[in-house]
């Protein structure tokens, strides 16, 4: 097994990304389409929530991705700061745009779902508030990338921001929990008891769970495909600007 650090070589990464990308894309499209169609057309309505449960197939995977993408950016930022692999930080940059869209989707679908269920578009519930803060973090991170011309400076600064931001994001999560107890139900999808059906309280039943699982996998695959694509784009851009700089010199 080759070392993972081999993929830190941009050329090698580009090649692998180009080879893998079509497969991941097709797989993502198939899983996502199956999951969403299954969820949208072939699941029953919840007896309390009516057809609004169908929103879960987008809301939950998007929310899950929003958090995990930030975690992935944290790891790749650390790798950049420690080992100075350009691919790593470019992957973080590519992932951030996906993350901001995922956060936005989670917020929008949540608001649309909350309207009939809680009778309001928006409440200052801990989870909603945390996501709003996360959205601000993503915006700040992307804005910082855009604002700085020198690519290495931008990479360093955004990486430090990502790390400091992660600490503050966790702090905010606790602060917000402390500040308001909220309407949201607790984690009900990934709780072990909920999946095996041993706990009866607010579990997501299997009828809803399998298409949801498929949607989650689909979102992850879509994210992987997008990150490969966007990272390769960034690598191409870097190489172009390097070539242009050499042209101007000669």
């Amino acid at each position: 097994m080759a070392s993972i650090w081999e993929y830190a070589n941009p050329v090698k990464f580009s090649k692998t990304a180009s080879a893998v990308l079509p497969w991941v894309t097709v797989l993502a499209a198939v899983t996502l389409a199956t999951g969403l169609v299954w969820g949208f057309f072939f699941t029953p309505d919840d007896f309390r929530q009516g057809s609004t449960v169908k929103i879960i197939y987008i809301h939950v995977p998007a929310a899950m991705m929003a958090i995990n993408i930030w975690a992935m950016m944290l790891v790749t930022s650390l790798i950049w700061l420690i080992r100075r692999h350009h691919v790593s930080v470019l992957a973080a940059k590519g992932a951030a745009s996906v993350g901001v869209v995922m956060t936005l989707i989670a917020l929008i679908t949540g608001a649309v779902w909350g309207q009939p269920m809680w009778g309001t578009w928006w409440v200052w519930d801990p989870r909603l508030t945390s996501f709003l803060i996360l959205f601000l973090f993503y915006l700040g991170y992307l804005a910082l990338w855009e604002a700085i011309d020198d690519p290495d400076t931008a990479a360093d600064l955004t990486s430090v921001l990502c790390i400091v931001g992660s600490v503050f994001a966790i702090l905010s999560r606790y602060a917000v929990n402390f500040w308001n107890q909220g309407l949201h139900q607790g984690a009900s999808v990934m709780r072990a008891g909920a999946v095996t059906g041993t706990d009866t309280e607010e579990k997501v039943s299997n009828v809803f769970f399998y298409p949801l699982l498929l949607c989650m996998i689909g979102f992850v695959l879509l994210f992987v495909a997008l990150v490969f694509l966007r990272t390769r784009t960034e690598i191409h851009k870097r190489r172009t600007s390097a070539l242009l700089a050499r042209e101007r010199l000669s």
Partner: peptide, 23 residues
């Protein structure tokens, strides 16, 4: 190092102020 960093500075600092403000 930025020419017009004022707005960006506010955007970056805003979420970092949340825990302090809440508590």
């Amino acid at each position: 190092g930025l020419k017009r960093g004022g707005l960006l500075l506010s955007l970056l600092v805003l979420p970092l102020y949340v825990p302090t403000l809440i508590f």
